[in-house]
Simulated assay, not measured.
Amino acid sequence: MRLGREAAAFAVLLLALAAPARADRASVVASAYSGLSLSAPSASFMTVCHGFGCQYRVELGLTSADHATMRRLMAAGSGSAAKERAAVAAVGAWFDKRVAPLAGTKGHVARANRDYMFDKGQFDCIDTSRNITSLLLVLDELGLFKYHRVAEPEARGHIIDFTAPHATAVLVEKDSGVKWSVDAWTRAYGQAPEVMPLERWRQLD
């Protein structure tokens, strides 16, 4: 059942919030994918989630041309942490367009709610937080981060008290330790993910 899958994924995320902060790739992989039985991404392959709660999945092979595009876009961020985050957002917009022909998501809307949950051409935040985390891990494997590392996805809200639950991919700035949300769920097709301090993201509805 789709709602059950989505609720279970949120439960895994909310439990992760209570755990001590960890930084290594293995812990990110365990947090992001184990609850959904997904394989970890690599520089040549990832599983893309769509249709709410990762109900639908498509295999994306990453080519040398894809790597070249990611390197070119990330090169614009070489001057500072802020520029690197802007470059990540640009890669996110490219990635959305790259995935759409395979997943059938060219018409996806921003902030897709439960009205869309039977539409496999849409993303909920479980889909986008996993997909963007996969993208960030690929960028990391390609050695394209100078100022950031990838952290576990995080969540806000609680199913049991009916506040809206929401999940996001996360980067951590190496020098300051500040966490940054990289949230594609709030954006429509082809738009760059929203990047903001995680503490600010936590305060949003």
Rank of each mutant, 00 (worst) to 15 (best):
Q191L: 10
R5L: 10
A19Q: 03
V12P: 10
C54N: 09
F123G: 01
A30D: 04
S134R: 05
S34Y: 01
I159K: 07
S80F: 09
D119A: 14
A103T: 07
T63C: 06
A188N: 13
I160C: 11
R22Q: 05
L62P: 06
D124M: 13
V138H: 00
R130W: 08
P20E: 02
P193C: 13
A9E: 00
V182R: 00
Y189E: 03
L142R: 02
A155I: 06
R114Y: 08
R85L: 11
A103N: 07
V109L: 13
K179T: 09
L102D: 12
T105P: 09
T128H: 10
L136W: 00
V91M: 06
W185P: 00
H148Y: 11
K174C: 10
S181P: 07
A151T: 11
G53A: 13
A23P: 01
M70S: 01
H166F: 08
E59W: 04
Y33P: 00
K120S: 08
D205G: 14
A68S: 06
T105V: 10
R5H: 10
L137Q: 01
S129V: 12
A89R: 05
I159L: 15
H158Q: 12
E6K: 15
E173K: 14
E154Q: 15
R149A: 11
P41N: 03
A65I: 07
V178C: 10
W201E: 04
C49D: 02
V182M: 04
A7Q: 14
R22M: 06
L198Y: 04
L13R: 00
R200W: 07
K106P: 01
H67S: 00
V28L: 00
N131Y: 10
A32W: 00
A90C: 11
D124V: 15
M196D: 11
H50I: 10
L36Y: 02
Y56K: 15
A23T: 14
W185R: 07
V88E: 02
V195H: 12
R25V: 04
L15W: 08
W185Q: 05
D24C: 01
L73K: 02
R22K: 04
T105E: 03
A87G: 04
E59K: 08
R85S: 12
S64D: 12
G51K: 09
M1I: 12
A90L: 12
A169K: 12
A164Y: 11
R114N: 09
W180Y: 14
A192I: 06
A16E: 08
E6A: 14
A192M: 07
A16K: 02
G4L: 12
A68K: 03
L62C: 04
V182L: 05
S44V: 13
L17A: 13
I160L: 13
S181N: 11
S64Y: 07
A169Y: 09
M74Q: 02
